[in-house]
Amino acid sequence: MNASNTRESVLGSIRGSLRVTGDDAARVDAVRKRLKAPSPNLVPERANVRGEESIALLTEMLEGQSAHVSRAKTLDEIPKLVANYLRKNNLPAEFRTGSDGLLADIPWGKATSLTHHLGRGQGDDAVAVSRARTAAAETGTLFLTSGPENPTTLNFLPDTHIVVIQAKDILGSYEDGWNAIRKIYGKRPLPRAVNLISGPSRTADIEQIIVMGAHGPRRLHVIIAG
């Protein structure tokens, strides 16, 4: 069977089983409406938080999932925070970022020991710093988007992943998070990858015992800025 025949046979079989046609106006309309104006289903009350409350919940949830969270009042404080974190964990004082504007605004030179590399992730990177565009406090979930600003490979190849998020970008629910993403991308399609990250990589595939750092980062350090 050629490709278009297969397509028609699958769709035909679905319609046959459902006893419907593809041009039934009521069905077409129902689908168009749902896709055109997506509306939220039930959102847990827990997600109904803003401001400091959402920061507190995000922190609590992330820490519950073995991430490390710290707060920087201004971008100026971040280099020292990163340098201290790396030293404390016996990690090399170098890291890689993409071209993200917020990350570029951080005065990395303030911590003279730090070496800053740019570009996509490499197989032997020890540390990467990315920026999350938004976060949903309900489960401690950071939203990272692919692109030159924050290459996806930085999220998964390094042993240690540091994510910077601005306090004002921390929202309550997944719905809030997606609405923020929709606002950023407007009529454009979603970026190639939106990574929802809620902790460091882990596995329990051997005897149901949790081990950190299965394939992705062993450590996730989240810096809330502002």
């Binding site: 992730g121 979930t141 290459p151 490979t153 970026p191 990858a193 939106v194 809620s198």
Partner: peptide
Amino acid sequence: ATGQECSTYTTFSTGPKRDGDPDG
């Protein structure tokens, strides 16, 4: 499934890499 609040990684993939993307 596992009793987690959410899985560590939930990844939404849309199409191949875009112009200017360094990876994907």
